[in-house]
Design a protein around this nucleic acid. Sequence first.
DNA 1: GTGTATATTGAATTTAAATTCAACGAATAC
DNA 2: GTATTCGTTGAATTTAAATTCAATATACAC
Lengths: 195, 195
Amino acid sequence: MTRKEQKEERRKAILMTALNLFVEKGYYETKITDIAQAASMSTGLMFHYFESKEELLLEVVKMGAQGTKALSSGADSDKMKDLPPDVYLKSFLTQMFQYANEQPWVFNMFVLMGQVRRAGMPEKAREAARQVDSIEFTAKIIRKGQKQGIFRKGDPKLLATCFWASVQGIMEEMAAGKDLRDIDPEWLMAMLRKE
Amino acid sequence: MTRKEQKEERRKAILMTALNLFVEKGYYETKITDIAQAASMSTGLMFHYFESKEELLLEVVKMGAQGTKALSSGADSDKMKDLPPDVYLKSFLTQMFQYANEQPWVFNMFVLMGQVRRAGMPEKAREAARQVDSIEFTAKIIRKGQKQGIFRKGDPKLLATCFWASVQGIMEEMAAGKDLRDIDPEWLMAMLRKE
DNA sequence: GTGTATATTGAATTTAAATTCAACGAATAC
DNA sequence: GTATTCGTTGAATTTAAATTCAATATACAC
């Protein structure tokens, strides 16, 4: 393994460690020292890999943004054409709740991205997180469902915002340690369905 | 006005100012200086009224806890007896969304209480916020609705947790400045309703 | 094998923000 | 109207945590 690869790997390891701690204890309660310790390295070394704590958060968010983009563009072409809107969204939820246990980092990334978008986080990271727009994409799906008569009436963007805000709320509850394994995705889908 | 009253009033003014800033900018991004400025007083004076920033947060939370207790015990006796469970919960949501515009502090208090319960906040305040339990209370209402056949099947506590987590998510989105005035409480009620 | 560059450490420094404090002003008591 | 207590200020101090740095170890190039 070349030195550059080694470095890349180390960076990623730090990013992952930071991600998990940020979600577990919150950005401000996570000290650089904590991350260093969790990643088994000295405090000083952290700054060999990242300029500052803020930059570290920013990089985590950028990684999340990339992942989201990849995910949604992949979804855009493949499944979305075939699957009915409700099935598509529901399978997304099912997947995400599954990840909460099996792929905590994917789950944590979603939680963090949502948190950083809101107030009370360093501006730079916030902006980066806001770039990622899942509303427009979801609104499109909802619109489709409305045309098919399976989703309720209402501004698709507003419904999408409401839907994701609810998902975010639930995922944060999960991240906070509550065992919500048995939540039925259908409960959330009901928010969108007609009748 | 006696001196004691004066002091009490000042304390409350600080608590309100802090509450609003905490929700607007987040606890950690809110500097004691910011609160002092917003409350038109010197930085030092803040410490005449509160031991520390943490204690200030704790007091805000205690105030919230009191309010919640008063509210829910009042509700317990009055409305809950008469109103059908779905009507009761829906009117609560309607009320709360209304408050977002007309009584921002009530709304902000709810948002803050929810935030403080989660990770990433000073431990003391977190504990105090966790004392307040709206889950048990809501679960009771949900159970009632299930017996009447108007709410869906499922563990009432889990449904309650899911319901409040969603409400929290939406309220945070509102607090973050998004205009969600037109959200229909029915969208959230659908999470609980049968069919 | 020698020299150069990169990785690593942990203690020293800096920094931003909380907190203290000495001094002044205003209200109340007597 | 003087004394005493409380309210108030803003600059000085402390503190916790981020950040830098000089020193050392390790890997790579030649």
